[in-house]
């Protein structure tokens, strides 16, 4: 049954490589990911997402930073939304250092965001999320 909790692919999108590194370690430790990919540029992450979503059965989790130079997290979501409309689903965690309530409200109300997590990301937060009902792609 452990396999039910796993994702085929986890995308880490943050312009800070240290953050990405830390997140990589945490995800790896939870053991929910078959594959982990790191993206400093969200555009590249989008392209990867589009490529991977072609395969219907693939389960994807995205850890997304809000503040990035090329494209912020919400812009990323707008673009990803077009993919979601085509029936492609994925889980998404918005991870930010922002403690701004406006950002938080925006993040919490976004249909594509499963959860809004304030940095630093904790191991338990991932574990709790994986077992929670807020997953869009629960175990079959």
């Amino acid at each position: 049954m452990k396999n039910d909790l796993t994702y085929d692919l986890v995308l880490l999108v943050d312009d800070d490589s240290v953050i990405n590194l830390v997140h990589h370690h945490i995800i790896k430790r939870t053991g929910i990911a078959k594959e982990i990919k790191i993206f400093l540029n969200p555009l590249e992450a989008l392209l990867e997402l589009r490529r991977k979503l072609v395969d219907n059965d693939i389960k994807i989790l995205i850890l997304l930073d809000i503040n990035m130079p090329e494209m912020d997290g919400f812009e990323f979501l707008d673009k990803a939304n077009t993919l979601a409309k085509e029936g492609k689903v994925f889980d998404l965690l918005m991870i930010t250092s922002s403690i701004d309530y406006e950002d938080m409200a925006k993040g919490n109300s976004h249909p594509l965001i499963n959860q809004y997590i304030t940095k630093p990301l904790k191991y338990n937060e991932i574990i709790n999320f994986v077992h929670s009902s807020s997953r869009l792609t629960p175990a079959p």
Partner: peptide, 15 residues
């Protein structure tokens, strides 16, 4: 962001 960001990174690294 600019101060809390690095601090949270540090916290993550400690973790």
């Amino acid at each position: 962001h600019n101060i809390r960001g690095p601090i949270s990174t540090l916290l993550s690294l400690i973790d």
